[in-house]
Design a protein around this nucleic acid. Structure first.
Lengths: 263, 263
DNA sequence: GCCTAGGTCCCGTCT
DNA sequence: AGACGGGGCCTAGGC
């Protein structure tokens, strides 16, 4: 599986000389890394300004652009994939990179007065990415084995039961009472309880025997009394058990995302 | 303002030779870029697997770690700041990087069989970052000029009015009726309406004259009838006008975030 | 195209 | 430490 990434490194380019290199890399859909001293302006849904400093700018094959400072998981400024990338020499000495998005209309402008390092990467990456146990996976597990909720529970319809929202699972308990199930993949918070109440309450006016159950791996602190006060229920879900159920029913992979690298 | 970033580039390192370079860079809190052929395993709140392929791994000064493929705004795998970074030679030929987070317990493992390019960056970045017009800014504007809502509206208390949640602004209209205001900085969606209803409904039982108003720059499609059916109101907010009000009252900057680069 | 709901969301803030 | 709500959230799926 040995593979050698194709790359080019350009230390200490002048902004003038960088123009061709950058334009070329963007045209060839390479991954472009630009390190240098810059300032950044963003205007769109909000506005932001970032004063001079040294950062790493990454332009990816799909024309997404990320500006990273030395700390922080998130880029300080960015543009999602598909934006238009323009380069320009300003006053003969500075490099301006403009990334424009049309929907919503947003512009990002980076002005470099000094480029330390420009790197071009041609990454070959066809590896499959798979993630286990999403909320959707839990839902599938319950559909496959309704006893995860309780004995003799039956799923009836899985969504679109209300004009004002979506119900994760709709079913019937062993006594024939309608049951609305809200699934959460993490800890249940107040928000989820209010959401479920919003689904159950209108229906309880016509059928007072309707039940609302939150199915999740964990219950937040102080949520149990809240549920009780609203006459709602909680059913703990074991995500590992879900993974097993899905594995047995479908094969080893639960959800696959094949991120197609461009050509 | 010319500045020269301090950097080191190591092309085609062997995994064995990379160990010292990487450990050293992490210890010195440099920004580390590693390009090579790798596979990735993540186990924590969820689990994921990424098969072999060429990627860019970034380890930042605060020990956040990002794995980027050639496309996508988001990293395919990551660990937020503060994780523990371990490096290890596997079978004498492969480089394993492990990033462990304790709360919640999550592990990320990257196995490289080939390193194309290792880059170390010492970014000097003290530039201030400022962002304009947040939800908080709109709130301040309304507090400063309640007529943005309607003539003779008065703000009474700005939050913590309910056990079941937080109200953005609480006030009184010219007839003395209590008013609950929910602020959104973007387009109003169904979710916000349900949220506001959740605040107004319990109070309307004791005082049926209570009003609920959503203040936002834009109303989503189909939201108006929903508001009407719940007897809630909408007041359009001009964000540019908010910016002016704040500028006049406080100065040019509305909210500043000084991301402190470590030493 | 817009809207909806999920996320390993991350992140600040407050209890 | 846990909980809560915002975000230029981003992203995928539906209509």
């Amino acid at each position: 599986m040995l593979q050698k990434t194709n790359f080019f490194v350009y230390p200490n380019l002048t902004p003038k000389d960088s123009l061709f290199v950058i334009q070329n890399a963007v045209a060839k859909q390479s991954v472009l890394l630009i390190v240098g001293n810059c300032r950044v302006d963003y205007e769109g849904r909000a506005s932001s300004k970032l004063d001079w400093g040294e950062r790493l700018v990454m332009i990816k094959s799909d024309r997404s652009i990320l500006i990273h400072r030395s700390t922080g998981y998130e880029p300080v400024n960015w543009q999602p994939p598909g934006c238009i990338i323009q380069t320009e020499l300003v006053s003969g000495i500075d490099l301006k990179i403009r990334a424009i998005r049309s929907q919503p209309r947003e512009t990002l402008e980076i002005l470099f007065d000094e480029l330390s390092l420009v790197t071009i990467l041609n990454l070959v990456d066809k590896g499959a990415f798979s993630l286990y146990v999403s909320e959707e996976d839990i839902k599938k597990s319950i559909m496959l084995r309704p006893s995860l909720i309780e004995e003799n529970f039956r799923c009836i319809i899985d969504e679109k039961m209300q004009p004002t929202g979506f119900i994760d699972i709709f079913g019937v308990d062993e006594e024939g009472n309608p049951v609305i199930i809200e699934i959460k993949r993490g800890t249940v918070r107040k928000e989820a309880v209010i959401q479920l109440r919003g689904y159950v309450e209108p229906l309880s006016k016509t059928n007072p025997k309707i039940r609302g159950i939150i199915a999740a791996p964990k219950l937040g602190k102080g949520i149990k009394p809240l549920l009780d006060s609203m006459n709602l229920e909680y059913k703990r879900i074991n995500v590992k058990k879900c993974a097993e159920i899905l594995k047995r029913s479908e094969g080893s992979k639960i959800s696959d995302f094949f991120t197609k690298p461009k050509s």
